[in-house]
């Protein structure tokens, strides 16, 4: 593999994105910190509503307004703080330096414009050029994502191509301006398994060719094992455990991660009933005072119910937010994830 992991390109520190709704304040992202290096793939794992997508949209400053607002934290892309940028400056960054692939290819493309038009539009925003040269770049872009007969495809409308092909086009749009960071938000969830494998392979190839930092949002541990270098597990708006893929699989340290891994059915075991985590995720506008997982955690005690645990270091680059780890491991001196 020619991919090499380089310098830190993206640093997120203590990010808080709240939604102000009529029910109250929904703490969709509540103090998430992570970093991403060039050429590295970070998986963000968690169940629906854990704040994965909201985290991703916050990185682009596209959390749905006016409800959602980034209330606190810092996002540094290549050393530059994004949260103090003007909307105009952000537009120059979106697509150009950080980009995203959305979950549902069926609706990610505008049905009334040709795919060529939509791809050219993306290129034109950051590289204004003559029409002919833009068309050539669009065709090259489609080639890059292995779309057959790209010269003809540019004139097609989204409804004329398959779902897998659409997601490739969305990929081509996302990488058309060579971003340094690409967020893929469950890009294969709505594709069937063979197409999914092809798409994942394609993403890896693109990453190898361009050495971009990839944030892969998923709830599928199989994909995590295949795609990611590091994993961040999210629960109710917090990153509860972060570590290398190996550490997370071999030594899951947060009860939630353990429970998640237990929920993955194994091919070897002959079990009658699938494991599932008892209880429901908390409602985000009415979070428990202490650890958010406490109501569902088999190990929870009084302290867990009243005080949110700090991040304890479990190993090299492996941390988890759980009080049980206090006895076994020394806390990281610079831990910032309280609050």
């Amino acid at each position: 593999m020619s991919r090499r992991i380089g310098d830190v390109i993206l640093e997120v520190d203590d990010l808080h994105t709240y939604c102000f709704t009529s029910y109250g304040v929904v703490k969709a992202v509540d103090g998430v910190s992570f970093s991403l290096r060039q050429g590295e793939t970070l998986g963000i794992v968690g169940e629906s509503g854990s704040g994965k997508t909201m985290t991703a949209l916050s990185l682009l400053r596209l959390a749905p307004r006016p409800t959602a607002r980034i209330v606190k934290g810092s996002i540094r892309l290549g050393g530059e703080e994004l949260l103090t940028k003007s909307e105009r400056e952000m537009r120059a960054i979106r697509g150009r330096r950080i980009s995203m692939i959305l979950q549902d290819p069926q609706t990610s493309l505008n049905p009334v414009f040709t795919i060529g038009n939509q791809l050219i539009e993306a290129i034109k925003i950051h590289h204004p050029d003559g029409h002919r040269s833009l068309v050539r770049r669009a065709i090259d872009g489609l080639k890059q994502v292995r779309v057959a007969a790209p010269e003809r495809r540019v004139a097609d409308y989204p409804h004329q191509i398959s779902g897998g092909m659409k997601q490739r086009v969305v990929g081509a749009i996302a990488i058309s301006c060579e971003p340094r960071v690409l967020i893929a938000d469950e890009p294969t969830t709505s594709l069937d398994v063979t197409i999914q494998a092809q798409y994942l392979r394609l993403l890896r190839e693109i990453q190898q060719a361009t050495n971009l930092g990839l944030i892969f949002i998923t709830h599928d541990f199989g994909i995590v094992a295949k795609m990611c270098d590091r994993v961040m597990v999210m629960y109710a708006g917090r990153a509860v455990e972060t570590g290398s893929v190996r550490d997370i699989f071999n030594r899951p340290s947060h009860p939630y991660t353990q429970a998640l891994l237990n929920s993955v059915p194994s091919m070897d075991d002959d079990i009658a009933r699938l494991y599932s985590i008892a209880g429901q995720p908390p409602t985000l506008w009415d979070l428990p005072e202490g650890c958010r997982f406490a109501p569902r955690c088999p190990h929870a005690d009084d302290r867990c119910r009243h005080e949110y645990p700090r991040a304890f270091s479990v190993g090299e680059g492996h941390t988890a937010d759980c009080w049980r780890l206090e006895k076994e491991w020394t806390p990281r001196p610079f831990s910032a994830s309280t609050g």
Binding site: A92, S99, L102, S108, F113, E121, A122
Partner: peptide
């Protein structure tokens, strides 16, 4: 989603509204 994608591209909001949405 395609409105989201056009914002991700870095398209100006007026163009998102008057080109992508209105049509």
């Amino acid at each position: 989603e395609f409105v989201k994608l056009s914002r991700i591209k870095g398209l100006a909001e007026w163009k998102v509204v008057w080109k992508h949405c209105l049509r």
